[in-house]
Amino acid sequence: MKRMLAGALALALTATAAVAEYPEKEIQGIIQWGAGGSTDTVMRSVTPHAEKVLGGVIVLQNMTGAVGAIALNYVAGQPADGYTLLMGAENPMLYKVMGLGDKDYGEFIPISILARGTAVLVARPDTPFDDYAEMISYVKAHPGEVKFGSTGPGGVPSVINAMIGAVEGELEVTRVPYDGDGPALTALQGGAIDVMPAVLGAAIEPIRAGKMKVLAIMDSQPNAKLPDAPYVTQFNAGYETYLPWGPFFGVFVRKGTPDEAVRKLTEAYAKGAQHPDFVKLMNDRGFTLMGISGKEAEDFLAKWQQGTAWLLHDAGLTKASPEEFGIARPGN
């Protein structure tokens, strides 16, 4: 019996050694945001499909704190062997200019930029304006009266606010800070704030129920989820410069990870993201599937970072100039 066990053990060991190809053990997936958030939902719903393609196990863990910087630094400190994945949103591309850290996705290889969100400007149903143009004229007639929801600098609302400022000139509104889309949209429904720039996915259900109204979709074309809603370039073509813009979700590994691991992971997430269940989930939540990787993803990241960092910098919302980090002004 003992000998048999030992034999089996030896056989299994040599078997694993001979096959020794990635992945030969479980992979850690570090999610930058907490359980129940949208990054968490996206990652937990795509990863099981990717696991099947990969033929390995990916253990997901949430590591929150400092706008995701804790998780990013943790993964950056692990060996570049493809056994630790970083699963995050757009925030790290702004760490440098926001003074939140000295690392961003530049230290990582994009395995997949899964999807991109669209921002939407929503208001309480009983506000005295019904679309974007009426809101702008109301704000100008009643300076300081309209309460805009916002989140920490670098969040989607702060970028949209900066964009509005860049196109319309600084609006005199009262900005009430919340710690995320969710709590702010709750406050909007309770009447604590009047207008909120939010991600479409977070607002779509209350919009459907008539709990809030769309002032404008922050995009240069109509949205399939809300075909009748106006989009912002209909009101002011000045937004063309900045759009399309939206938050995104992606999976990353450290630079220096072996090519085979990168290749297998890329393939796994590319196929996993095409699973009908995932496509339906993304569609229901108003996200645009991207599924890009490699050079294409890197270009996307660089362009996103340029546009957003300078937009925030020009609005006075950064701690350091993008120039200091070699982020060129878009168009240069």
């Binding site: 259900e205 459907r208 709990k211 989930l281």
Partner: peptide
Amino acid sequence: TLGIPGDAVTAIMIGALFIHGLNPGPML
């Protein structure tokens, strides 16, 4: 009633409903 979490656990359950193809919100 609204798709708004009342605490941390219900927040995760809302995520679970999404993943299972439901859309928690006022229309649910």
